[in-house]
Amino acid sequence: DEVRLHVNGHTIEFRGIDEEIFKILEEAAKRGADEEELRRLAEKLLR
C-alpha cells in the first residue's frame, strides 16, 4: 500500500499509511513542512 504526496515539486512516497494519516501529512505539506518533517510526522503517527 503506497501513497504519493507532492510537495514543492517533489514526490514523496509513503508505504503502509491509511487515508487519515495521509490527510494529516497533506495538510502539513500545505503549511510548508519539508520532506524530513513529513517523514518524522508519519513515523509518530504510525506508532
Rank of each mutant, 00 (worst) to 15 (best):
N8L: 04
E26Y: 11
D34L: 06
R39A: 02
G16D: 09
R47D: 15
L25G: 00
N8I: 04
I24P: 00
D18F: 01
L25Q: 00
F14I: 07
K44G: 07
L38W: 01
A28S: 09
F22E: 02
A42C: 15
V3N: 14
E43L: 03
L41W: 03
D18A: 09
R4M: 08
E27S: 07
E13Y: 12
E36A: 12
E35D: 05
H10A: 07
E36R: 12
L25D: 00
D18V: 04
D1K: 07
T11M: 11
L25R: 00
I21L: 09
H10Q: 08
L46N: 05
D34N: 12
A42S: 05
E43M: 07
L5D: 03
N8W: 01
R39W: 06
E19M: 13
F14Y: 04
G16Q: 07
K23A: 08
R4I: 15
F22A: 10
I12K: 01
N8G: 10
D18Y: 03
E36Q: 13
R40C: 09
E43Y: 05
A28N: 06
E37D: 10
R40D: 14
K44F: 11
E20I: 12
N8E: 06
L5R: 00
E2F: 14
H6S: 13
I24H: 10
E20K: 13
F14L: 07
I21E: 04
I21Y: 05
E13A: 14
G32F: 02
H6N: 12
E19R: 12
G9W: 04
R47I: 15
E19C: 05
I21M: 15
A42I: 09
R40E: 14
E37I: 08
I21K: 09
R40Y: 12
E19L: 11
R47V: 15
L38R: 00
E2W: 12
R31H: 14
L41N: 00
H6W: 02
G16I: 04
L41H: 01
D1N: 11
N8C: 07
L5P: 04
K30Q: 11
K44L: 12
I24N: 03
I12E: 03
F14M: 04
A33P: 01
R31G: 09
R31Y: 13
N8Q: 06
A29E: 03
L45D: 01
I17A: 03
L45E: 03
L5W: 00
T11Y: 15
D34H: 09
L38Y: 01
H6E: 15
R4S: 13
F22D: 02
A28W: 13
E20C: 12
D34P: 06
L41A: 01
I17D: 03
D18W: 07
A33T: 06
K44V: 09
E37W: 08
L46E: 04
E43C: 11
E37N: 06
H10N: 08
L5Y: 01
T11P: 06
H10P: 02
E13H: 11
D18S: 13
V3C: 12
R15D: 11
I21H: 08
F14D: 01
I12L: 11
I12W: 01
E37A: 07
T11G: 04
R39C: 07
L5C: 05
L41M: 13
K30M: 11
G16P: 04
E36P: 13
V7D: 02
G9I: 05
E2Q: 08
G9R: 01
A33H: 06
E35S: 07
R15A: 10
E26W: 07
D18C: 07
D18Q: 07
K23N: 08
R47T: 15
E13G: 09
V3G: 10
L46Q: 08
L25Y: 01
L45T: 01
L41Y: 06
K23R: 13
V7G: 02
D1Y: 15
G9F: 04
A42Q: 05
R15G: 09
R31P: 01
D1P: 04
E35G: 07
D34I: 06
L5M: 05
I12H: 02
R15T: 15
E37V: 06
I24W: 05
K44I: 14
L45P: 02
I24D: 02
R40L: 13
R40W: 14
E27L: 08
E26L: 13
R39D: 02
E27C: 10
L25I: 05
R15L: 12
R47S: 15
E19N: 11
H6R: 05
R47N: 15
I24Y: 11
T11I: 14
E26S: 13
K44S: 12
L45M: 06
E43V: 07
E27P: 00
E2R: 08
G9S: 04
I24M: 09
A28R: 06
L38S: 00
E37H: 06
I21W: 04
R4K: 14
D18E: 06
A28V: 09
R31E: 12
E26D: 05
G32C: 02
L38M: 02
A29V: 07
A28M: 10
D1A: 08
D1C: 09
L25V: 03
E20D: 11
E35R: 05
E37K: 07
A28E: 08
A33F: 13
N8M: 06
A28L: 10
E13I: 15
E35N: 06
T11R: 03
G9E: 05
F14G: 01
T11V: 15
R39H: 05
R31Q: 14
R15P: 15
H6A: 07
L41F: 04
K44C: 05
E26T: 07
E36H: 10
I17W: 05
A33I: 11
E2C: 04
N8P: 03
E36K: 13
G16K: 02
A42G: 04
E19S: 12
R31W: 14
T11F: 15
A28D: 00
D1Q: 08
H6Q: 14
L25N: 00
A33G: 04
F14R: 00
F14A: 01
E13R: 06
E2K: 10
R4C: 04
R40P: 00
G9D: 05
E35T: 05
G32A: 01
R47Q: 15
L38T: 00
L45Y: 10
E35V: 11
F22Q: 08
H6F: 04
A29Q: 06
A28Q: 08
E20P: 05
H6K: 09
A42W: 10
K30V: 07
I17H: 03
N8A: 07
E19F: 12
A33K: 04
A28I: 05
E43K: 07
H10M: 13
K23C: 04
R47F: 15
L46A: 07
E19T: 10
E37S: 10
L5N: 02
T11S: 12
K44Y: 14
L46K: 13
R47E: 15
G9L: 05
E36T: 11
V3H: 15
E37C: 02
